[in-house]
């Protein structure tokens, strides 16, 4: 059975001298009773869907079914290409990727829920951007997805990955934490450092509520995917410089779980609080659901 806590997983990895991704693959083979090759090929298919979704809305403006969002990935791609950004081509391209998947999702395109559909932009944007920069092979990107999934399993076991249960910290927060941990391993960091990155990301997003306008996975979701992506990437650098989290990962996840439980129902995906009940949001809602 998959490790229950981060601490336990780190110890297993250290004792066996393996990275998190290797542990995650081995556990998946045991759980699913299919071959290692099949498990890896399954993740390869997953990666391909991610790549497509992260490119599609950069190349042409797409529109969500409600008409509320779309076209932003295209905008930021053009902006990044002009080369006059403040934070550089790397971060701008990462933001474009995140928005692209989110917009494709809102337009009924094909995506990978990772961990959810609402947060589907973060992990692909982070892995693909880091992979491009680090010149990683496809197999290395697949490994990174296993690292991310491994961290996600631990979060799922000890808290929740659903906005309806734990707010957006549980969706976009978990996605960013998983992604940051994966990048740390891609950069040669240890399992302990990977979990440190996840802990720092969650601490920085702790308390974020789930308040989708009109109950749709569009506003503020798409831009939270951008924020999560940036947080995951910058935190990886922070950790690779040698910075550690004063509070260990497992305790941070416990805190997230507690905060999620303390959130009123109005701030957990019901569209009855936060951004969802601002006057402008209510006007959008009325327009979308008229007739």
């Amino acid at each position: 059975m998959f490790a229950s806590r981060g601490e336990e997983l780190i110890k297993i990895c250290n004792d066996n001298h393996i990275p998190i991704w290797e542990y995650a693959i081995r556990e998946e083979v045991l759980l699913s009773e299919v071959s290692r090759q099949d498990v890896i090929e399954n993740m390869r298919r997953t990666l391909h869907v991610m790549v497509d979704a992260s490119i599609y809305a950069q190349e042409q403006p797409v529109r969500s079914i409600s008409g509320l969002i779309g076209g932003d990935a295209y905008k930021i791609k053009l902006y990044a290409d002009k080369g006059k950004t403040l934070t550089g081509g790397f971060l701008n391209r990462a933001m474009a990727r995140a928005l692209s998947s989110s917009e494709v999702n809102a337009a009924m395109g094909r995506i990978v829920a990772c961990p959810t559909a609402g947060s589907c932009g973060i992990l692909p944007a982070v892995i693909l951007s880091a992979g491009e920069k680090l010149n990683n092979s496809e197999d290395e990107l697949i490994n990174a997805l296993f690292t991310a999934a491994g961290v996600g399993v631990i979060i799922a076991k000890n808290a929740t990955l659903s906005g309806a249960e734990g707010g957006c910290q549980a969706e976009c927060g978990s996605a960013a934490a998983m992604a940051s941990a994966a990048v740390v391993e891609m950069m040669g960091g240890t399992p302990e450092q990977a979990f440190t990155a996840a802990a720092i990301v969650i601490k920085n997003i702790l308390g974020l509520v789930c308040d989708p306008v009109a109950g749709l996975v569009e506003v503020p979701c798409a831009k939270r995917n951008v924020a999560g992506t940036v947080s995951a990437l910058t935190t990886a650098d922070l950790v690779m410089s040698g910075v550690f989290s004063k509070i260990p990962f497992d305790e941070v996840i416990e805190a997230m779980n507690r905060v999620g439980r303390q959130m009123p129902v109005s701030l957990r995906e019901t569209a009855q609080g936060g951004i969802a009940i601002t006057p402008t949001a209510l006007i959008f809602k009325k327009e979308i659901f008229k007739d």
């Binding site: 059975m1 799922a156 076991k157």
Partner: peptide, 22 residues
């Protein structure tokens, strides 16, 4: 404690926008 497949976490592959509504 429930056991999860890595594909419960990174997955499923689906048409958006919502795993429960779509």
């Amino acid at each position: 404690m429930q056991d999860y497949s890595v594909f419960d976490i990174v997955g499923p592959i689906m048409i958006g926008p919502s795993s429960s509504h779509t």
